[in-house]
Design a protein around this nucleic acid. Structure first.
Lengths: 288, 288
DNA sequence: GTACTAATGACAGGACGCTACCATTCCAAT
DNA sequence: ATTGGAATGGTAGCGTCCTGTCATTAGTAC
């Protein structure tokens, strides 16, 4: 009898179920079918609820999940919840096998966090923020403590695609850069602040100061930052809590790179020119 | 200022959260924000997991849910599941839809690059390198140009989980730190070098110098680095070529975070102790 | 029918999630 | 500085979920 055609948009779960489709017991067939039909709302179920809805015992559900390759219902939920698991693109599948240990979990979470940045760049504020940065006459960047380096790198890299970018350190310089200058009274200035909640507290003060001076502010921060929204609409969140000893800065780095790239995209020619002239320039200086 | 405009596609949950937005405590604001950002995968969470990810206690989450009108987390999940209307596309699918544009492709590549780090941490050299870092008496970290900040952050963060870590800048200090000291002749020293191919050229010289002084070397670099292998077995590659104007440093950041985490894992107690004493310490110094 | 194997369920133990009660901390007003 | 109230966290206890062991049932070959 006709097998269902291999659905191109086959979910990983469906694929697993199809693999064992041939030799299933009656109870298992029930579970399998129910899983396929209810895959969309699976996340809301528990092993027990599946058991009662399919009319089998909990343990049979548990056994079946093992049979199709999950170590338990937790692992099933992990798979359907992780967009990374749905990355059919390239050879993601190939790596998945390697990602069992603790570090592998952290990797998956970081990968998920990066994919979920899609929700951030889809917001209308994203384009507005990029425009603001692109058209600013001067761009300031700052960040503290464990993301300070990130902010500095971002400043360097943004400085490659457009000029007049500088990292400012509130403590070292006292923000003299911001003293209003009559000559430049009409220039558009923007501050990009990189922040992570657990540590920095003066960030809010700095943002307030900047706003007071008429400087636009873009905040790139983690998912727990709650104060930034009240000062500027340009707040973008990256998920940094992967469960490691320390938060993961990877998603923040990716988000910052995305900003750089998007700004470069506003004037590709200029950016490309700057990029090509930059290494030679640096070599001469012998910097770094 | 500037409240976010009422999103036309406002979910019931979002509406409830907005209702109470005005008068929230700090913890509640965090929970609220996290719920908004992670609504798509909420079904997979538990009250406890939300608590740990937002850094508040379970009971605060429980209280907050009551405050916004649910009798408990079960009722929240029920609400998410019932208007199946807007969930007919699975949460995962909704993510993928956001990943279509040019930036979305970059995100996918970065996510993929991170997953592929699994092949790096699976190599036997990984454990050996972590052991070397863990047991070293002194750890040096360096990096140039557009990954210099990454290296500095890594040094700071590694310095939280174990002592005697410092960033060295070949150009600023002339590497005086490395001058052999008789008193410390038998100490184990290790250098962690963060490198990206297109830019730095003196990296190899520094590695050779370090080896000559009996310093172990760990190199964290991109996929194009070919010279490091001949100096040390501890070379780990992250894929940084995502096709953007500039390379993506996200995977490198993730890999470095992984190193930090793995080292912390060698002595979790000590690391935890250092971590907890660190913020207070910093606050007193008033640094950054 | 009998005997053997596979499938399934009942029960119990362990783990984890959720909430009630109480202690502690934080904050603001005086 | 003091104080009162709100906010938050810790501990404990109960309930639910999940899985291991053993017993029971169903299916099958002779």
């Amino acid at each position: 009898m006709a097998l269902p055609p291999p659905d191109p948009a086959d979910s990983p779960l469906a694929a697993r179920l199809r693999d064992v489709e041939a030799k299933l017991t009656r109870s298992e067939a029930m579970i399998s079918q129910w899983l396929l039909l209810n895959e969309a709302t699976l996340a809301l179920e528990t092993g027990a609820s599946i058991a009662s809805k399919t009319g089998v015992s909990e343990i049979t559900v548990s056994r079946f999940l093992r049979r199709i390759g999950f170590r338990g219902i937790a692992e099933l939920k992990a798979e359907i919840g992780s967009p990374a698991a749905n990355l059919h693109i390239s050879a993601a599948e190939r790596y998945m096998r390697l990602l069992d240990g603790e570090l592998g979990i952290l990797l998956k979470r970081d990968a998920d966090a990066i994919l979920s940045l899609g929700t951030q760049i889809a917001r209308p504020e994203w384009d507005a923020a990029i425009t603001t940065i692109d058209q600013a006459d001067e761009v300031f960047v700052t960040g503290f403590q464990t993301v300070r380096g990130l902010a500095e790198d971002f400043a360097r890299r943004l400085g490659i695609v457009r000029g007049s970018v500088r990292y400012v350190s509130a403590h070292d310089s006292g923000l003299v850069e911001w003293i209003p200058s009559l000559r430049r009274a009409n220039e558009a200035r923007v501050l990009v602040l990189v922040d992570m909640v657990p540590y920095a507290r003066e960030a809010e003060t700095i943002v307030r100061t900047a706003r007071g001076l008429g400087i636009s502010v873009v905040v790139v921060t983690d998912e727990l930052n709650t104060w930034a929204q009240s000062h500027t609409p340009f707040v973008f969140h990256a998920s940094t809590k992967a469960g490691a000893f320390l938060e993961s800065t990877g998603p923040l780095a990716t988000l910052l790179n995305l900003v750089t790239h998007a700004v470069a995209g506003r004037d590709p020619e200029k950016a490309r020119k700057r990029l090509s002239s930059w290494p030679a320039f640096l070599r001469d200086l012998g910097l770094y």
